[in-house]
Nucleic acid binder design. Sequence first.
DNA 1: ACGGGTAGTTCGTTCATTGAACTACCTCAC
DNA 2: GTGAGGTAGTTCAATGAACGAACTACCCGT
Lengths: 180, 180
Amino acid sequence: MALPSTYADRNCSLARALEVVGERWTLMIVRDAFFGVRRFGDFAAQLGIPRAVLTSRLKALVQEGVLVRDDDGSGNVEYRLTDKGVELWPVVRALMGWGDAHYSPAGVKRATRHDQDGGPLDPDGRCQDCGVLVPVPDIRIEPGPGFVAADSEPDRVSFAINTPRRLLEPVTPRAAAGRD
Amino acid sequence: MALPSTYADRNCSLARALEVVGERWTLMIVRDAFFGVRRFGDFAAQLGIPRAVLTSRLKALVQEGVLVRDDDGSGNVEYRLTDKGVELWPVVRALMGWGDAHYSPAGVKRATRHDQDGGPLDPDGRCQDCGVLVPVPDIRIEPGPGFVAADSEPDRVSFAINTPRRLLEPVTPRAAAGRD
DNA sequence: ACGGGTAGTTCGTTCATTGAACTACCTCAC
DNA sequence: GTGAGGTAGTTCAATGAACGAACTACCCGT
């Protein structure tokens, strides 16, 4: 991976995209960002990723404009998806869909719905009730039939992630209001 | 990466999918398979991947049922996408789309069309002329406006890949007929 | 000053990738 | 049958990346 372009193929946007999000952990970080994770410690705990690797990945994602780093100056930092990052949703959705289809016989692990009317979404992200292409912030995600309950008490972040909620909604109700 | 599951998240089909196709090179191999590459040597030359790594990735993909290995007994082996592998097309398409959108200002590097009527496909893979959801074998792929011509004479496989053709059509016209 | 929370860095170990060279097998022409 | 040429791999030393635990640095409220 490293910098552009270990995948030497100059004519393939897949190679180019993988330069950015193809490294180990990167898409998992992006996934968590969609689920509302914003804090360094939350990413680290949620993913079980070495902190040095997390630092490196977050730096790369910020540099590529997938995340923004927002430091409030008081030791609290937030990483949030940019528009460019949000546009990775189809990638995450496609991979999740494939994983669900082939490795989750009991059904999808997480279901998506149109938050406004509760309609389920088709594979393209369209509401099956009202037909609109649901924008990412209006997508509600919730445990599906293939979801397996944790055997131990979930931590704060896992609980939030496994409770019906809209994408991008921060899992950590940050003290300061209006920060969203 | 390694075996199931270095991404410990048991409730995430994204993690599960990445266990299979998230390693370095893997999606590039799958991409080439969509483009009709089937031979060990063609993958190796096309991707510039160390042969040992290619061996390992192909083995893993076969074991996961993404590819089938077809050995005709005469030293010729073909790796072909299974149905499960073909279902990765939305993943490849989504990543290519994102790469095109953000790293190819001159336009998409490869355009997709409905082979039957030549209609361009929308981001969901639907023909904009006739409206049908085009099955993968009926998708024609061809250089788009962002494509940059090679500076040197392309090899046989690169030439085939960069010429309008249907997905999954083998780039190597294997001697034996009916082998498809 | 202190305790607790936060975001990182450091560093020795382990593991994966790289790249070049080498092996093994089959086929066809002679 | 023997040798040339094509195929699919394997081997191995060197490099680089990931791991994980411990440590540093900063800010805060008390």
